[in-house]
Design a protein around this nucleic acid. Structure first.
Lengths: 316, 316
DNA sequence: ACTAATTATGTAACTGATTACACAAATGTA
DNA sequence: TACATTTGTGTAATCAGTTACATAATTAGT
């Protein structure tokens, strides 16, 4: 498979499928070798039934990891070939109890030899290879169960995207973005208050009052902002406020990067403890603050109606 | 996948298929993640076309290892979505030359990021596992190309079957089998000659004349015979003759086992060089004799019309 | 130069799995 | 006890590939 080495790991799915196919293709011929009128796809079901008891369709499906319609069809085929018998459960009218027929048990004996030969052939193959396919499959099953391929790719996407994000200090040309990005979420979840207009229309005053604003750029477009306000309070020196990220730029870790940068800035300004106000309706925001290290504190008076949670972060 | 550890290696095909499925399932969602209106199954074809040139359906199929109808369908879908364009080849009216459209090239650029993220995710997975799935697949592809699973299973079947075969010395109760087994092949390919009747009706005389007969039993049924005749010749002391294996017992290595046993017997009798006559029409027999070590020698007079090849084996 | 063989492509039917949906029986709950 | 939920099963549609077959164009062999 020359091609796969060229394409690379992205095609591992296709490559797996093709390997599967070459093996399954031979399976049919292997059964013929033993003069058994048996389809390879029946095998997992057959294997379960060989225990001897009666099983329901769904219990077999669960056991072998197939969907129940798949088992349903396989059972229908095996019944038609006389290998299994169905019987309605008297106690539970939904259940279709299936078990091996006399003919099925007979075939089971014949299959033993084949089973041994195939197992030996596979073991031999495994022994000839340096990399253990069987164990590798098992590991991948486990790893993918822990964290799906989708989520793994998503994580890498996030890392890559966040590399394209640059955090820069506020400049007057970002005044419009500073207002627009904040207005967007405020008016989506709440209503703009007087304090909002006062703050968003006078970004410069923050800086004048020893505060700070940071802007997140993505492809040189401002897509996120965050402000640091000097507070006149015995407990806190700075407040983190006016954090906003464009919904169009979600999933690039921008909130976290902005938050980290503003915390660094606060440290540089000599802050010992940060304060912020928010609303519990904004779940992603709250969880972002948690991730940044903020913890909830008891209520304080706020100029904003919408504030229903207060948080702080001790800086060392 | 608890089940697979119980069933064992015989189900490696099913297990592979299920792993493939969980990965391919995610593939669709991964493409969605990048806002690309693209189907995963198009990828191999797309990858080939990205080289920039024009390709025929069959050349793509060969390159990616699919059947041509598969590529034909994929191309049809991609044309419908505007990713590729078709063009009849002027020089060869059969050829359908396909290449990426402007839109296709555009998507190719978008896909680069995804390509990188997926590759990284897979590499990460590979790094987390102790057993390298990628390399294991590659090895299996190679090993199965060298010798298919079918042939490997067949080999193990043969070994197991030949363990059920027992070679025993001639007894009078095998007289009928000795004649019948030989008559079967002689009258199938040639006609019974006088010398045949004389020999087959008087098996005992071989033994009287310091010769020997061995019988192969399978499930205690005589299924093969072979005789050693004392020769009155300056060059040879014994002749291997009347070798016969029932067609019903083929593929169990019986001919080889009989041959080996008779050679051992000859050595025990003090023979230095064995001789045999056969006919080139009996290909499996000739190749068996080769496998046993016999080499062709120049013609000698024979009492049998059908003999057209002579062979000998030096014993050490 | 003509016929046979080969090559390129497309269509149809099949395969072994899936998801979506329908429906009946059993179980849980107010 | 009635009604909602859960469970067990089957049918239909779908999916990504396959093989089998049909057809047209080219190439090879006599």
């Amino acid at each position: 498979m020359e091609f796969f080495n060229k394409v690379g790991k992205m095609a591992i799915g296709s490559r797996l499928r093709m390997l599967t196919e070459t093996m399954v293709e031979d399976a049919v011929r292997i059964y013929k070798l033993y003069d058994i009128d048996f389809q390879p796809k029946w095998f997992p079901v057959f294997y379960v039934l060989q225990d001897g008891g009666e099983f329901t369709i769904t219990s077999i499906a669960r056991e072998i990891g197939h969907s129940h319609p798949s088992v349903s069809k396989i059972i229908a085929e095996m019944v038609k070939n006389g290998f299994v018998i169905e019987k309605k459960d008297k106690a539970d009218g939904r259940r279709n109890m299936v078990s091996l027929s006399a003919k099925g048990i007979e075939v089971g004996k014949k299959i033993q030899d084949q089973y041994a030969d195939v197992t030996n052939a596979v073991e031999e193959l495994l022994a000839q290879a340096n990399h253990d396919l069987w164990k590798a499959i098992e590991e991948w099953e486990y790893l993918l169960e822990q964290k799906s391929l989708l989520r793994r790719v998503q994580a890498h996407q996030k890392i890559r995207e966040s590399n394209k994000v640059h955090i820069v200090p506020y400049e007057p040309k970002y005044a419009r973005a500073f207002k627009a990005l904040n207005e967007e979420w405020i008016s989506k979840y709440f209503v703009m208050e007087d304090a909002d207009y006062k703050a968003l229309d006078n970004a410069d005053s923050y800086i004048i009052n020893n505060g700070h604003i940071l802007v997140a750029l993505y492809n040189n477009e401002p897509v996120g902002v965050c402000a640091l306000l000097k507070m006149d309070d015995p407990d806190y020196d700075y407040e983190l406020a006016k954090m906003a990220v464009s919904p169009k730029a979600q999933g690039k870790n921008i909130g976290f990067l902005l938050g980290q940068a503003i915390i660094e800035k606060a440290k540089a300004l000599g802050s010992h403890k940060l304060y912020l106000e928010s609303n519990t309706i904004l779940k992603p925001a709250i969880s972002l603050y948690h991730k940044l290290g903020f913890v909830k504190v008891a209520g304080r008076p706020s100029p904003y109606e919408r504030a229903n949670i207060q948080m702080e972060l001790e800086l060392k």
